[in-house]
């Protein structure tokens, strides 16, 4: 009797037969292989649909199916956790000819991926008001307030924040898709993800803090854009939302 094939090599052949664009002429029964090939594609498309509901709504079910299958054909899964599949979908859309008439689609996808990751990431310690007071006393003018993993700045040359909010509200038909780009704060508070559109002052303040600037210099950067920048309001928003790192 022949020595059994090396298990890893056999499993690699089996997986290749499942993922390949066209099923190779292999030892596996075609009917059985068809079940696994279908499971593979349906499963990954389901993961994309879960992570990208706004992209799916924008393009419609049939187009999304084609889009998802084109992506799946060239993007292997690298984890047993399906929630981690689809990170490069936005980059894929950059070069996807059939969607070229929707220039805001790739950034909409990137925005959705950030929110998807924000929703699932592990809980992190955050700064509360008491700890802020202590840190302010300790650091004085050198006080820094880096963002926690619950918050992320996001920028696009398309109005993707408005698009996302409109889909949530069911008012997407009123969105001016040619409107100017937006800077956004994406965040998770009490388990729910949300976003806030930023004016120039807010964007300057948050991106400076995110990069490790002192509160003082970040606030100076905001005041350049808006002499009435609402520092107290922003501090309260960030603290109650758990958006500063502990």
């Amino acid at each position: 009797m022949a020595e059994p094939k090396d298990p890893a090599a056999l499993q690699a052949d089996f997986l290749a037969a499942i993922t390949a664009a066209t099923p190779a002429a292999v030892d596996f029964s075609p009917a059985a292989l068809a079940v696994y090939r279908n499971n593979y594609r349906v499963g990954l498309e389901g993961a994309l649909a879960l992570a990208y509901p706004v992209v799916a709504a924008i393009v419609g079910a049939d187009f999304f199916h084609g889009l998802a299958q084109a992506y799946i054909a060239r993007t292997p899964s690298h984890s047993g956790n399906l929630h981690l599949y689809g990170e490069s979908f936005g980059a894929f859309l950059d070069g996807f000819g059939p969607a070229a008439s929707l220039p805001y689609l790739p950034d909409t996808a990137r925005l959705e991926w950030c929110l998807h990751r924000l929703y699932y990431h592990a809980d992190v310690p955050v700064l509360d008001a008491a700890a802020l007071g202590e840190r302010a006393n300790r650091q004085g003018e050198a006080l820094t307030l880096p963002l926690s993993a619950n918050a992320r700045c996001f920028a696009s040359s398309h109005p993707v924040g408005t698009i996302w909010l409109a889909h949530r509200a069911g008012t997407e038909e009123q969105v001016d898709l040619d409107a100017p780009g937006e800077r956004l704060l994406l965040y998770r508070t009490a388990g729910e993800v949300d976003l806030r559109r930023l004016d120039a002052a807010g964007a300057a303040w948050l991106s400076a803090l995110a990069e490790g600037a002192t509160l003082e210099s970040a606030t100076d950067a905001a005041l350049v854009h808006d002499a009435g920048f609402d520092l107290q309001g922003w501090l309260a928003f960030m603290l109650t939302g758990g958006l500063f790192a502990a």
Binding site: Q11, A12, Y40, A47, S77, H78
Partner: peptide, 10 residues
């Protein structure tokens, strides 16, 4: 196998 996954029970 080899860092690639099927997300199925094979």
């Amino acid at each position: 196998v080899g860092g690639r996954y099927a997300n199925d029970l094979l």
